[in-house]
């Protein structure tokens, strides 16, 4: 007698499946996940975990958190990051101290592996959500992440 119960079960499971997709169909108008990209360019916001490019946030006084320890440069498998550093005199102690001159980031070589961000002891660099990375000339992909005349934020090294 499993013949008839098979038929019953078959019809029941098919109807269950159809009700699931039917619900999706009805709610598709407001729940559509498609982004109509060039149209919603002004309002489009990428999700937090999106890996667009490496950025170095600066605060209002043009200060960053990079101490120039070069751990990211060592961690990077492709040689994407180049830190050009210098020794300057620290105002507080008067001693010579290592500080970054230019944090050079080659986006064209970056594979977005995130090792540099994981390894950074001071959280100086993080992921940016920009995804419009195409340019006409590849020299535009070599970026200096620290802004001109920026300096180290106080208290980062403590």
């Amino acid at each position: 007698m499993s013949y008839f119960s098979d038929i019953y079960k078959g019809i029941k499971t098919l109807l269950t499946g159809m009700s699931v997709t039917g619900k999706y169909f009805i709610t598709s108008k407001k729940g559509a996940i498609t982004q109509q990209y060039p149209d919603n360019r002004d309002t489009l916001k990428m999700f937090d975990r999106f890996r667009g490019e490496v950025i170095m946030p600066h605060n209002e006084e043009n200060e960053h958190r990079c101490t120039g320890c070069q751990k990211c440069e060592i961690a990077c498998p492709n040689g994407t990051i180049e830190i050009i550093w210098d020794r300057g005199i620290d105002e507080e102690t008067g001693k010579k101290k290592k500080k970054i001159d230019q944090f050079v980031y080659h986006l064209s070589m970056c594979t977005m592996c995130g090792l540099c961000i994981d390894v950074c002891p001071t959280d100086a660099i993080e992921w940016g959500q920009n995804f419009e990375n195409s340019v006409y000339d590849r020299t535009a992909l070599t970026r200096v992440l620290n802004k001109p005349d920026s300096k180290l934020m106080k208290g980062v090294e403590d």
Binding site: T21, S28, K29, G31
Partner: peptide, 10 residues
């Protein structure tokens, strides 16, 4: 269109 709506696309 119907396929898209079933899959929550446009």
């Amino acid at each position: 269109r119907v396929a898209a709506w079933f899959q929550l696309r446009i």
